[in-house]
Structures are given as C-alpha cells and as structure tokens.
Amino acid sequence: MDTLLPRIGLPSDGLIDPAALLPACDVQVLEIGFGGGEHLVAQAAARPLAGFIGIEPFLNGVAKALTAIDADGLDNVRLARADAREILPRFETACLDQIYLLFPDPWHKKRHAKRRFVQPETRDQFARLLKPGGRLRIATDVKSYADHCMIELTGDVRFAWQAGNAGDWRQPPADHITTRYETKNLGDCAPVFMDFVRV
C-alpha cells in the first residue's frame, strides 16, 4: 500500500486517460469493484498487451490485488481505492474497450435498490466511456439484480445485448475467470453473464 500503490495508482485529480497511463497497451479495460483482484490480475497476466484499470473501495481487496500484482510482476495494471461512481466522470470520453462489473453488491431489499451500482447515471457513464464496439460485461448470482440490469440496459439503444439463446447467459464466457467469491454460491440463482456491446 505504501510503495506499490503510489506507483500504479490513478492520478488524484484531473482527467484520466487510460491510453496515456498505459501507453504500451493497445486495449484499455476497466474492472469496477474487483474484490480481491483475482479476476483482474488473472486477466492482466493473460493479456499483457491490454491495459487494466481496477477500482475498489475496500482496503483489504486493494491490498490483496497489490500483493498479486507485485508477485506476478505485472506492469499493465493501474489501481484506485475509491468509489467508482466518483471517479468515472473523470475518465476521457470513449477511452475504454471493455468494462467488467462482476458480482456487485445486489442490495437485495427493495428500499435499497437505489444503492445498486447499475443506475441510469452509471449506465450513462458506461455509454460515454466505451468506444463504439466496446463491451460491457455484468455478472451476478442474484435474480433480482439480473432483472434490474436487464431493464436498465436492454431498453437503452446505445447497448446491444449479445445473447442469442439461454446458454449465452447461463454459461460463463470463454474468457471468464472464476473467483473464490463466485464459487461460494451466495446468491439465489446460478451466475448470469450479461454481455453488451456499445452501439
């Protein structure tokens, strides 16, 4: 936290341009709420020419990710310990090729639904940040959250849902990295994978 995070952290103010932060990378990817960093680190290790930015509010998750980044010697990752909703407006427009939002806090109770990450405001940020043809992947194991996301995104002409049949959302995508959290089966349904393309 004291030595590596200052070197690979996002700038504390001003615009954030992922291509400028990771100039050796030809693809720019954002993971929101990366937890312990298992998915983020594994993706970054598998795709060394892609730049990965991870945003996570919790200290323990950031510390775990930093440990793995250091152990693997990865130089294509940048991190921020923050609430992504506060940082997304600082990103350049159309700067990302892919966004991951995997198993976010579902806020089960109806009165708490407004706290869910996927809201009209964040949907607008996804649309602003993704390049044309860029991809958004949301995964959840909570049926009500899957329904919530589908309502927010399938009704927006800026996004095209990529599912052609039920298997497309019931089976993990070929490039998916399963994390320990996912294997705990804490939700009320099997994982649902929703892939959208920015039109």
Score class of each variant (00 low, 15 high):
Asp156Pro: 08
Gly51Met: 05
Met194Gly: 09
Ala84Ile: 04
Pro23Trp: 06
Ala46Tyr: 02
Gly134Lys: 04
Ala139Trp: 11
Ala146Lys: 04
Ala80Glu: 00
Val199Ala: 15
Ala24Lys: 15
Gly61Asp: 10
Arg47Ala: 09
Leu66Pro: 02
Ala71Gly: 11
Asp168Ser: 03
Glu121Cys: 08
Arg81Tyr: 09
Ala46Met: 10
Phe196Cys: 15
Gly33His: 14
Leu10Thr: 05
Val41Cys: 15
Arg170Gln: 15
Cys95Met: 02
Leu129Asp: 01
Leu40Gln: 07
Arg116Ser: 06
Ile16Pro: 05
Ile16Gly: 03
Asp70Ile: 01
Asn165Arg: 05
Asp156Thr: 10
Ala190Phe: 06
Lys131Ile: 11
Ile8Met: 08
Ala19Arg: 10
Ile138Pro: 14
Phe117Asn: 06
Thr122Pro: 04
Ala113Lys: 11
Arg170Ile: 09
Ala163Ile: 03
Leu102Pro: 00
Trp161Met: 15
His112Val: 02
Arg116Gly: 14
Thr67Pro: 00
Val118Ala: 13
His112Met: 07
Lys131His: 01
Arg123Met: 04
Asp83Met: 09
Phe103Leu: 07
Gln43Ser: 12
Ala160Trp: 07
Lys184Phe: 12
Gly35Lys: 05
Pro6Gly: 03
Thr183Asn: 11
Thr140Arg: 10
Gly14Ala: 03
Asn76Ala: 02
Val29Asn: 01
Pro6Arg: 04
Leu74Gly: 03
Ala94Glu: 13
Leu102Val: 01
Phe117His: 09
Phe193Ile: 04
Phe196Asn: 02
Glu31Phe: 05
Phe34Met: 11
Asp75Leu: 00
Arg78Ala: 05
Gly187Met: 06
Pro106Arg: 12
Gly54Ala: 02
